[in-house]
Amino acid sequence: MLTVLFAARDGLWEAYRAPLTRALAEAGIAARVVTETDAPETVDYIVYAPNDRLTDFTPFTRCRAVLSLWAGVERIVTNETLTQPLCRMVDSGLEEGMVEWVTGHVLRHHLGIDRQICARAPSWEQVVPPLARDRTVAVLGLGALGRACAQALAGLRFRVSGWSRTPRAIEGIACDHGADGLRRVLERAEIVVLLLPLTAETESLMDAERLGWLPEGAVLINPGRGALIDDAALIAALDAGRLGHATLDVFRTEPLPADHPFWAHPRVTVTPHIASETRPDSAARVIAENIRRGEAGAPFLFLVDRSRGY
C-alpha cells in the first residue's frame, strides 16, 4: 500500500478528503493518505500546496513525485531541497473557472457595462460598442489556461492575438513570440489579458515601457500573477489617461493591503483572487492519474521544467 502525504494549509484536507479517497479508489490505487508523518522516508507521493510546515523535502527519500494543487509553482520551484519530480496542477475545473472569469470581464469592458450602469443622473447617452469582430484582445501566456481563454474569446468572434516566450500554434489565434512579438501584440491590443507564469523573465513584464506600447485607452486584465505588473508604472499610466482601466485579481501582496492605492483608484477594479480556483473533485482525479502513472512507469502529466520555472 502506498503512503501519500497531503501537505497543504490548514482546513484544505477536509475539502479533499472524500474526492481524493474516491479518485484513488476509482484509479485502482491502494493508498493510505496522511496529513502528518514521523517517517518521511516511507512517503511515496506528496500532494502539496505551499505551507509553513513543509519546506524541506530532503527527508522524503522514497518520494517519487511532488504533486502541486496549484497551477503556479513559483513558490516551490526554486526550493533547493526539492529534487523529486514536480507536477503542477492543470484540471478542467480550474480551466473552466478561468475562462468564465476572463470572458466575463473582457465582455464587461468591451460593452462598456460600467459606464452604462454607473450613471448618477438620468442619462440617454447612446454609446454603441463595436462588434467583437472589430475589437482586438491580446492574451499573454498560451499555456493551458491562456489557450482555453484565447479560444473562448475567438469563439465570441473577438480578434484574438496570443503571445508566449516560445513559438505556439493555435488554430484561429494569431500567435507571436519573443521580444519583438510582444511589442507587435501590445501595439494593437485594446484589451490585454495576462496569464503568464511568474518567472525571473516575466516579473514586472508590464513595466512603463511596455505599458506605453498599448494604444491609448487600452484595458489591462490580470488574473495571472500580481508581480507580472509594475504597480507604480500601472498607476502612472492610469493617472495620465494612457490606460482606460485595469481589472486585477492577483497582487504582489495578498490580501491587498488596505492602504494600497489600487483600492481607491477610479480606473482600477479589484477582485480578491477569485478568477479561478482548483476544484477538489477534478483536481483529485488529476492527482490520482499522476500516481497511477508513477506506479506504471509512465510519464507524469504537467511535469515542471525547472530550467524554465514552470
Rank of each mutant, 00 (worst) to 15 (best):
L131M: 15
G224C: 01
V193W: 02
A49V: 01
G224A: 01
A179Y: 02
A179N: 13
R210W: 09
I291D: 12
W163N: 05
T247V: 01
P257G: 00
L67A: 06
L194E: 04
A15P: 04
A23L: 03
E41W: 04
F60D: 10
A154S: 14
R292F: 09
H273A: 08
A233G: 10
C87I: 06
V270F: 01
A25S: 13
T61G: 05
T103N: 04
M89G: 08
A236C: 07
L198T: 00
A150M: 06
N79H: 10
L153D: 03
L54F: 05
L238K: 09
N51W: 00
M1W: 11
G241K: 02
V192T: 02
L256N: 02
E171M: 07
P130V: 15
H273I: 00
V185F: 07
Y310Q: 07
Q116R: 12
G297Q: 04
G178R: 03
G141P: 08
W124C: 08
F262T: 00
V304L: 11
D52C: 05
G97Y: 05
A258V: 10
T55F: 04
Y45I: 06
E187R: 11
V102F: 05
G93A: 14
S307H: 09
A296I: 01
L220V: 15
I229N: 02
G146W: 02
E203A: 14
C63G: 14
R120G: 14
A275P: 05
P129E: 10
Q116L: 13
A132G: 15
R188P: 06
L238Y: 08
E95N: 07
F302K: 03
P197V: 09
V304P: 06
L86N: 07
W213V: 08
G294M: 06
G155E: 09
V34N: 06
V33E: 07
F158Y: 15
A237H: 03
